[in-house]
Amino acid sequence: MPKGKVLIIDDESDVRDVLKFHLSENNYQVIEAENGQEGIDLLKSGDNLIHVGVILCDIRMPKVNGIECIQYLRQEAPGIPIVVVTGFPDTQMAVNLLNEGVKDYLVKPVEKEKLVATVEKLIAGGKEINF
C-alpha cells in the first residue's frame, strides 16, 4: 500500500526518472507529466484530483511554464500542496511563489533525504481545505 500519490511535472525525463526513483524507493506512487498543460490534464483525469497528495513542479518548461501552471493549480486544486523543484535558484522568485501558496522551493540537485522529508511532511499534513 503506497504512502501517497505524487504528481511530477518536469520537462526532462532524466529528472523525472530520478525524482520517481527516490520517491518510489520510499513507497510513493508517482505519476508524471512533461509540461504544465499535461500536468493539468493529468490531474483532472481519473481520480487524481482526489488521490494526488503532493505536486512537484519545475519552473522552466516549454508550453505552459511552471509559474502559469502553479497559478492554475492553485485555482483548480487549491488543496493540493505544491513544491517547486527547480535548477534555477532565485530568491525573489522563491519568495513570490511561497507567497502564492507554494509550500516549498527545492533547488536541484536536491538531496534525496530533503525531497522525501518534504513530501512526507506535506502528505502527512493532508490537504488544506478552505471554508
Binding site: V15, D17, L19, G87, K108, P109
Partner: peptide, 12 residues
C-alpha cells in the same frame, strides 16, 4: 539552470 539539472540526474 544548465548545470544543476544534469548534475541532479547524475547524482540520482
Amino acid at each position: 539552470h544548465e548545470l544543476n539539472n544534469p548534475l541532479y540526474t547524475l547524482i540520482g
